[in-house]
Amino acid sequence: MEWVVEANQLKKVYNGVKAVDGMDLRIKEGEIFGFLGPNGAGKTTTILMLLGLTEPTSGEVKVFGYNSTKNPLEVKRITGYLPENIGFYEDLTARENLIYITKLNGIPPSESAARVEEVLSVVGLSEVADKEAGKFSRGMLQRLGMAATLVKQPKLVILDEPTLGIDPEGVEQILNLIRKMKEEKNITILLSSHFLHQVQRICDRIGIVSQGKIVIEGSVDEVGEKIMGEGGTQIQVQVSQLTPGLLDSIKEIEGVRDIDVSGNFLNIRCDRDLRLEVSRAIVEKGCFPLLFKTQDYTLEEIYVRYFRER
Protein backbone atom coordinates (compact mmCIF):
# COMPACT_ATOMS: atom_id res chain seq x y z
CA MET A 1 0.00 0.00 0.00
CA GLU A 2 1.28 3.41 -0.97
CA TRP A 3 1.24 5.96 1.82
CA VAL A 4 0.78 9.64 1.12
CA VAL A 5 2.64 10.63 4.25
CA GLU A 6 5.11 8.32 5.83
CA ALA A 7 7.16 9.32 8.85
CA ASN A 8 9.52 6.92 10.54
CA GLN A 9 10.84 7.49 14.02
CA LEU A 10 10.88 11.22 13.56
CA LYS A 11 12.73 13.12 16.28
CA LYS A 12 13.26 16.80 16.87
CA VAL A 13 15.18 18.34 19.72
CA TYR A 14 14.88 22.09 20.34
CA ASN A 15 17.42 23.45 22.80
CA GLY A 16 17.64 20.13 24.60
CA VAL A 17 13.86 19.67 24.74
CA LYS A 18 12.40 16.77 22.80
CA ALA A 19 9.54 18.33 20.87
CA VAL A 20 8.99 15.25 18.72
CA ASP A 21 10.21 11.95 20.00
CA GLY A 22 9.86 8.92 17.78
CA MET A 23 6.83 9.91 15.72
CA ASP A 24 5.50 7.27 13.33
CA LEU A 25 2.84 8.63 11.04
CA ARG A 26 1.13 7.07 8.08
CA ILE A 27 -1.66 8.64 6.06
CA LYS A 28 -3.60 6.95 3.27
CA GLU A 29 -4.56 8.63 0.06
CA GLY A 30 -7.93 10.41 0.20
CA GLU A 31 -8.50 10.23 3.93
CA ILE A 32 -8.94 12.90 6.55
CA PHE A 33 -6.50 12.18 9.31
CA GLY A 34 -7.08 13.93 12.63
CA PHE A 35 -3.92 14.81 14.45
CA LEU A 36 -4.99 15.34 18.02
CA GLY A 37 -3.23 16.26 21.16
CA PRO A 38 -2.79 18.95 23.76
CA ASN A 39 -0.82 22.10 23.03
CA GLY A 40 2.89 21.42 22.99
CA ALA A 41 2.50 17.74 22.13
CA GLY A 42 4.59 18.20 18.99
CA LYS A 43 1.88 18.48 16.35
CA THR A 44 3.06 21.68 14.71
CA THR A 45 6.71 20.61 14.84
CA THR A 46 5.81 17.38 13.06
CA ILE A 47 3.92 19.34 10.42
CA LEU A 48 6.88 21.67 9.88
CA MET A 49 9.11 18.63 9.36
CA LEU A 50 6.60 17.17 6.89
CA LEU A 51 6.89 20.35 4.85
CA GLY A 52 10.64 20.51 5.12
CA LEU A 53 10.40 23.84 6.95
CA THR A 54 12.48 22.45 9.77
CA GLU A 55 14.99 19.62 9.79
CA PRO A 56 14.41 16.54 11.89
CA THR A 57 17.13 15.70 14.38
CA SER A 58 16.79 12.10 13.27
CA GLY A 59 14.38 9.92 11.33
CA GLU A 60 12.90 10.66 7.95
CA VAL A 61 9.65 11.72 6.45
CA LYS A 62 8.28 11.22 2.96
CA VAL A 63 5.37 12.93 1.28
CA PHE A 64 4.20 11.27 -1.92
CA GLY A 65 7.57 9.57 -2.02
CA TYR A 66 9.56 12.82 -1.80
CA ASN A 67 11.90 13.15 1.13
CA SER A 68 10.79 16.35 2.85
CA THR A 69 14.21 17.21 4.20
CA LYS A 70 16.12 16.72 0.98
CA ASN A 71 13.49 17.79 -1.48
CA PRO A 72 11.28 20.34 0.27
CA LEU A 73 10.44 22.22 -2.91
CA GLU A 74 8.71 19.22 -4.50
CA VAL A 75 6.82 18.55 -1.30
CA LYS A 76 5.70 22.15 -1.00
CA ARG A 77 4.60 22.18 -4.63
CA ILE A 78 1.99 19.48 -4.02
CA THR A 79 1.14 20.32 -0.43
CA GLY A 80 -1.09 23.12 0.75
CA TYR A 81 -0.38 24.30 4.27
CA LEU A 82 -2.59 26.44 6.43
CA PRO A 83 -0.48 27.56 9.40
CA GLU A 84 -1.97 28.14 12.79
CA ASN A 85 -1.71 31.91 12.61
CA ILE A 86 -2.22 32.58 8.95
CA GLY A 87 -1.51 36.09 7.83
CA PHE A 88 -1.89 37.89 4.56
CA TYR A 89 -0.45 41.10 3.22
CA GLU A 90 -2.82 43.59 4.72
CA ASP A 91 -2.62 46.21 2.05
CA LEU A 92 -3.24 43.74 -0.75
CA THR A 93 -6.74 42.57 -1.60
CA ALA A 94 -7.77 38.96 -1.15
CA ARG A 95 -7.39 38.41 -4.86
CA GLU A 96 -3.95 40.02 -5.03
CA ASN A 97 -2.76 37.87 -2.14
CA LEU A 98 -3.87 34.74 -3.96
CA ILE A 99 -2.31 35.90 -7.22
CA TYR A 100 0.97 36.39 -5.37
CA ILE A 101 0.78 32.81 -4.16
CA THR A 102 0.17 31.53 -7.66
CA LYS A 103 3.25 33.46 -8.79
CA LEU A 104 5.34 31.95 -6.00
CA ASN A 105 4.15 28.57 -7.23
CA GLY A 106 5.20 29.37 -10.76
CA ILE A 107 1.67 29.09 -12.11
CA PRO A 108 1.48 30.90 -15.46
CA PRO A 109 -0.46 34.19 -15.33
CA SER A 110 -2.84 32.99 -18.04
CA GLU A 111 -4.02 30.25 -15.72
CA SER A 112 -3.82 31.94 -12.36
CA ALA A 113 -6.74 34.37 -12.73
CA ALA A 114 -9.19 31.55 -13.41
CA ARG A 115 -7.82 29.44 -10.58
CA VAL A 116 -8.08 32.32 -8.13
CA GLU A 117 -11.69 32.99 -9.13
CA GLU A 118 -12.51 29.34 -8.67
CA VAL A 119 -11.05 28.97 -5.19
CA LEU A 120 -12.57 32.28 -4.09
CA SER A 121 -15.99 30.98 -4.98
CA VAL A 122 -15.28 27.62 -3.33
CA VAL A 123 -14.55 29.32 -0.02
CA GLY A 124 -17.34 31.85 -0.52
CA LEU A 125 -15.23 34.99 -0.69
CA SER A 126 -15.99 36.04 -4.26
CA GLU A 127 -17.91 39.09 -3.14
CA VAL A 128 -15.13 40.47 -0.98
CA ALA A 129 -12.32 39.49 -3.34
CA ASP A 130 -11.34 43.11 -3.89
CA LYS A 131 -11.37 44.06 -0.24
CA GLU A 132 -8.04 44.46 1.50
CA ALA A 133 -7.08 41.44 3.54
CA GLY A 134 -6.31 43.72 6.51
CA LYS A 135 -10.04 44.37 6.87
CA PHE A 136 -10.99 40.69 7.01
CA SER A 137 -12.38 39.05 10.13
CA ARG A 138 -10.63 36.04 11.62
CA GLY A 139 -13.12 33.67 10.02
CA MET A 140 -12.72 35.26 6.61
CA LEU A 141 -8.94 35.14 6.92
CA GLN A 142 -9.14 31.47 7.70
CA ARG A 143 -11.27 30.86 4.64
CA LEU A 144 -8.86 32.90 2.57
CA GLY A 145 -6.15 30.67 4.01
CA MET A 146 -8.07 27.63 2.77
CA ALA A 147 -8.30 29.27 -0.64
CA ALA A 148 -4.54 29.82 -0.53
CA THR A 149 -3.94 26.13 0.06
CA LEU A 150 -6.34 25.17 -2.73
CA VAL A 151 -5.10 27.55 -5.37
CA LYS A 152 -2.03 25.46 -6.05
CA GLN A 153 -4.25 22.43 -6.64
CA PRO A 154 -2.58 20.30 -3.99
CA LYS A 155 -2.71 16.58 -3.46
CA LEU A 156 -2.27 16.94 0.28
CA VAL A 157 -3.54 19.70 2.52
CA ILE A 158 -2.24 20.24 6.02
CA LEU A 159 -4.43 22.30 8.30
CA ASP A 160 -3.00 23.40 11.62
CA GLU A 161 -5.78 24.27 14.09
CA PRO A 162 -8.07 25.58 11.35
CA THR A 163 -10.97 26.28 13.72
CA LEU A 164 -9.05 28.12 16.42
CA GLY A 165 -10.66 31.39 17.45
CA ILE A 166 -13.57 31.19 15.03
CA ASP A 167 -17.26 31.57 15.82
CA PRO A 168 -19.52 28.50 15.57
CA GLU A 169 -20.92 29.48 12.20
CA GLY A 170 -17.44 29.96 10.83
CA VAL A 171 -16.38 26.58 12.21
CA GLU A 172 -19.31 24.98 10.44
CA GLN A 173 -18.29 26.57 7.13
CA ILE A 174 -14.72 25.45 7.51
CA LEU A 175 -15.62 21.89 8.42
CA ASN A 176 -17.93 21.71 5.41
CA LEU A 177 -15.16 23.03 3.23
CA ILE A 178 -12.75 20.40 4.50
CA ARG A 179 -15.26 17.69 3.75
CA LYS A 180 -15.87 19.14 0.30
CA MET A 181 -12.14 19.20 -0.41
CA LYS A 182 -11.94 15.53 0.33
CA GLU A 183 -15.10 14.47 -1.47
CA GLU A 184 -14.93 16.60 -4.59
CA LYS A 185 -11.22 16.87 -5.19
CA ASN A 186 -10.01 13.73 -3.48
CA ILE A 187 -7.46 15.67 -1.50
CA THR A 188 -5.79 13.93 1.39
CA ILE A 189 -6.09 16.01 4.53
CA LEU A 190 -4.06 16.15 7.71
CA LEU A 191 -5.99 18.09 10.30
CA SER A 192 -4.35 19.09 13.54
CA SER A 193 -6.61 20.23 16.32
CA HIS A 194 -7.48 20.05 19.95
CA PHE A 195 -11.18 20.66 19.39
CA LEU A 196 -12.23 17.07 19.50
CA HIS A 197 -15.96 17.31 18.96
CA GLN A 198 -15.34 19.15 15.68
CA VAL A 199 -12.73 16.77 14.40
CA GLN A 200 -14.74 13.73 15.38
CA ARG A 201 -17.39 14.52 12.80
CA ILE A 202 -15.16 14.67 9.78
CA CYS A 203 -12.11 12.50 10.43
CA ASP A 204 -11.71 9.06 8.93
CA ARG A 205 -8.87 8.23 11.24
CA ILE A 206 -7.31 9.92 14.19
CA GLY A 207 -3.99 9.73 15.93
CA ILE A 208 -3.59 10.96 19.47
CA VAL A 209 -0.28 12.68 20.04
CA SER A 210 1.30 12.90 23.41
CA GLN A 211 4.83 13.93 24.28
CA GLY A 212 6.05 13.85 20.73
CA LYS A 213 4.63 10.60 19.47
CA ILE A 214 1.40 9.02 18.37
CA VAL A 215 0.16 6.95 21.26
CA ILE A 216 -3.08 5.64 19.79
CA GLU A 217 -4.22 5.53 16.22
CA GLY A 218 -7.32 4.34 14.35
CA SER A 219 -10.91 5.34 13.65
CA VAL A 220 -12.75 7.20 16.40
CA ASP A 221 -14.54 3.97 17.42
CA GLU A 222 -11.38 1.91 17.49
CA VAL A 223 -9.56 4.48 19.57
CA GLY A 224 -12.51 4.66 21.95
CA GLU A 225 -12.48 0.94 22.45
CA LYS A 226 -8.77 0.84 23.01
CA ILE A 227 -8.91 3.43 25.76
CA MET A 228 -12.25 2.75 27.39
CA GLY A 229 -12.01 -0.99 27.33
CA GLU A 230 -14.34 -3.22 25.35
CA GLY A 231 -18.07 -3.31 25.84
CA GLY A 232 -18.23 -0.34 28.15
CA THR A 233 -21.39 1.71 28.19
CA GLN A 234 -22.28 4.93 29.88
CA ILE A 235 -25.71 5.72 31.20
CA GLN A 236 -26.72 9.25 32.00
CA VAL A 237 -29.67 9.69 34.34
CA GLN A 238 -31.31 12.78 35.65
CA VAL A 239 -33.19 11.93 38.83
CA SER A 240 -35.94 13.96 40.49
CA GLN A 241 -33.93 14.16 43.67
CA LEU A 242 -30.92 12.54 45.28
CA THR A 243 -32.35 10.45 48.10
CA PRO A 244 -30.02 9.00 50.71
CA GLY A 245 -28.73 5.57 49.87
CA LEU A 246 -29.55 5.92 46.19
CA LEU A 247 -25.94 5.98 45.07
CA ASP A 248 -25.05 3.02 47.24
CA SER A 249 -27.87 0.89 45.92
CA ILE A 250 -26.90 1.66 42.34
CA LYS A 251 -23.29 0.83 43.08
CA GLU A 252 -24.38 -2.52 44.42
CA ILE A 253 -25.84 -3.50 41.06
CA GLU A 254 -23.62 -6.08 39.46
CA GLY A 255 -21.70 -4.66 36.50
CA VAL A 256 -21.61 -1.00 37.59
CA ARG A 257 -18.07 0.34 37.54
CA ASP A 258 -18.42 3.82 38.96
CA ILE A 259 -20.67 6.85 39.20
CA ASP A 260 -20.01 10.54 38.71
CA VAL A 261 -22.49 12.90 40.30
CA SER A 262 -23.06 16.50 39.25
CA GLY A 263 -26.21 18.11 40.56
CA ASN A 264 -28.95 15.60 40.05
CA PHE A 265 -27.24 14.11 37.01
CA LEU A 266 -25.65 10.72 37.43
CA ASN A 267 -23.10 9.39 34.98
CA ILE A 268 -22.94 5.66 35.44
CA ARG A 269 -20.28 3.61 33.73
CA CYS A 270 -21.02 -0.05 33.50
CA ASP A 271 -20.08 -3.21 31.66
CA ARG A 272 -23.33 -3.52 29.74
CA ASP A 273 -26.66 -1.76 29.32
CA LEU A 274 -28.09 -1.79 32.85
CA ARG A 275 -30.89 0.70 32.34
CA LEU A 276 -33.56 -1.66 33.68
CA GLU A 277 -31.65 -2.43 36.88
CA VAL A 278 -30.71 1.18 37.44
CA SER A 279 -34.26 2.45 36.99
CA ARG A 280 -35.53 -0.20 39.38
CA ALA A 281 -33.02 0.92 42.00
CA ILE A 282 -34.06 4.54 41.52
CA VAL A 283 -37.75 3.84 41.88
CA GLU A 284 -37.14 1.69 44.97
CA LYS A 285 -35.42 4.63 46.66
CA GLY A 286 -38.47 6.82 46.23
CA CYS A 287 -37.63 9.00 43.27
CA PHE A 288 -38.03 8.78 39.53
CA PRO A 289 -35.81 9.30 36.50
CA LEU A 290 -36.45 12.49 34.54
CA LEU A 291 -34.09 11.67 31.71
CA PHE A 292 -32.46 8.47 30.74
CA LYS A 293 -30.00 7.82 27.99
CA THR A 294 -27.09 5.66 27.06
CA GLN A 295 -24.11 7.27 25.49
CA ASP A 296 -21.38 6.16 23.21
CA TYR A 297 -18.07 7.62 24.14
CA THR A 298 -17.25 10.90 22.50
CA LEU A 299 -13.77 11.65 21.43
CA GLU A 300 -13.62 14.27 24.14
CA GLU A 301 -14.20 11.69 26.83
CA ILE A 302 -11.75 9.29 25.30
CA TYR A 303 -9.23 12.03 25.23
CA VAL A 304 -9.80 13.33 28.73
CA ARG A 305 -9.74 9.78 30.00
CA TYR A 306 -6.53 9.03 28.22
CA PHE A 307 -4.67 12.01 29.57
CA ARG A 308 -6.09 11.56 33.06
CA GLU A 309 -4.67 8.07 33.15
CA ARG A 310 -1.18 9.32 32.38
Binding site: L51, L53, L73, E74, K76, R77, T79, Y81, P83, N85, I86, G87, F88, Y89, E90, I101, L104, N105, G106, G145, A148, K152
Partner: peptide
Protein backbone atom coordinates in the same frame (compact mmCIF):
# COMPACT_ATOMS: atom_id res chain seq x y z
CA UNK B 1 4.19 39.62 13.19
CA UNK B 2 1.72 39.60 10.30
CA UNK B 3 2.04 35.83 9.98
CA UNK B 4 2.87 36.08 6.29
CA UNK B 5 6.29 34.48 6.65
CA UNK B 6 4.94 30.98 7.14
CA UNK B 7 2.54 31.56 4.27
CA UNK B 8 5.36 32.52 1.92
CA UNK B 9 7.79 29.83 3.09
CA UNK B 10 5.21 27.07 2.71
CA UNK B 11 5.16 27.86 -1.01
CA UNK B 12 7.74 26.14 -3.20
CA UNK B 13 10.47 28.75 -2.72
CA UNK B 14 13.86 28.48 -1.07
Amino acid sequence: SRGTISMVLSQPVF
